[in-house]
Simulated assay, not measured.
Amino acid sequence: MPTVAITDTEINPTYFGEGGGGWNVFAETELSPVPSLPAPEVTTDPALWIGPLSATPHGTLDSGGGIQPCDCGFEWGLTAAYGETTPTQKKETGESFSQAITGLLPNTTYHFRAFATGFGTSYGADRIFVTAINSAILATVTTDPATGRGAIAATVNGTLNQDGGEACVCGFEWGLSTEYGTVTPIESKTTGETFSQVIGGLVPGTTYHFRAFAT
């Protein structure tokens, strides 16, 4: 028996047809398209703290797109084909991110680009950095004024001005004279970072000397 279509102005056509066991009803339906979410947008920022054996690429998640937070990181290598990927970090729109890369070769050009994965993966532009020549660059450090001075304790402060290309071990020598005699616990720092230590057990009304060091 031929199939007959009955059309309503508000519904899709409905079809009637005779099957092997009687009449069957077939109704056409329309599926709404799945909305497309925007992909993230990311910028590759310049690398900082470039030494002979390490560097720190930076990036910014300009937009998380349709899914937040996004997984952000860097691809890097000797060419624009990269080949290496850093660990990722969870970031949201407007947040920056960075990742230290170590084990590099001195005086060598490296390529890197930021990426963000949310609803799809997006990449920033390719950038390069050139590692420093592996010469004997000495670390430089500044002894900053002490703070939080009390009767029996004080906080000594310092700034690592230049790490010489690698993280430095930083601390303080202190004592009753410029011969010092006592060393504080140490901290690992890189160029531009400050450090401090609380010295306790002091004698009230007594002058003490101190100086910062970096190795």
Rank of each mutant, 00 (worst) to 15 (best):
P33E: 14
C72S: 02
R211T: 10
T79K: 08
F129Y: 07
P40G: 10
G65N: 10
E41A: 15
D144E: 15
A100C: 01
A139R: 06
Q197P: 00
N24A: 05
Y82E: 03
A100G: 02
I128C: 07
T142I: 11
T140A: 09
C70H: 00
G175N: 01
S177I: 00
P57I: 06
P57Q: 09
I186Q: 09
A80E: 14
T29E: 07
A125R: 08
A146Q: 10
T194N: 14
S36Q: 12
V203A: 09
A55C: 11
P145L: 06
E10P: 00
E92A: 11
F97H: 11
Q99S: 14
P145I: 07
N161A: 15
I133D: 15
N161Y: 04
N12W: 10
C170H: 04
A132R: 12
T93E: 06
T155Y: 01
Q197K: 13
I152H: 08
T191Y: 01
A39D: 11
G73W: 07
Q99E: 13
L37M: 10
P145H: 03
P35A: 08
K189M: 07
A214V: 10
F129E: 00
T140W: 06
P40R: 11
A212N: 08
I133K: 15
T184V: 05
W174D: 00
A125T: 14
S63R: 09
N12C: 02
A154D: 03
H111A: 11
E193P: 02
T14F: 04
T86G: 06
T56G: 00
N107P: 02
A212Q: 05
S188C: 01
G21H: 10
V169S: 08
G65H: 13
G20S: 13
H58A: 05
S135V: 15
T215E: 07
I128Y: 04
P57S: 10
A139I: 03
L202K: 05
L48R: 13
L78P: 01
I133F: 04
P33K: 09
A5Q: 14
G73K: 09
G65S: 09
T102W: 03
G165R: 06
T155H: 01
S32T: 13
R127W: 08
I67G: 00
P106V: 05
S96I: 02
E193W: 04
V34N: 04
E95F: 04
K90E: 13
A139F: 10
T140C: 02
N107S: 15
G200M: 03
L78R: 15
F115H: 14
T85Q: 14
G158W: 03
E84F: 11
D144N: 13
P46F: 11
N12R: 14
T117L: 07
G148V: 01
T178I: 08
G118R: 02
L176V: 09
G65W: 09
R211I: 11
Y123E: 03
T93N: 05
G205E: 13
E173Y: 08
C70V: 09
T88Q: 13
S63L: 01
A55Y: 11
I137Q: 15
N134V: 02
F112N: 05
A80Q: 12
L105I: 13
I11V: 12
F16E: 12
S177P: 05
K90N: 12
G148L: 02
G165E: 07
G59P: 04
R211G: 02
T131E: 10
E179N: 12
F16T: 13
M1E: 09
L138Y: 12
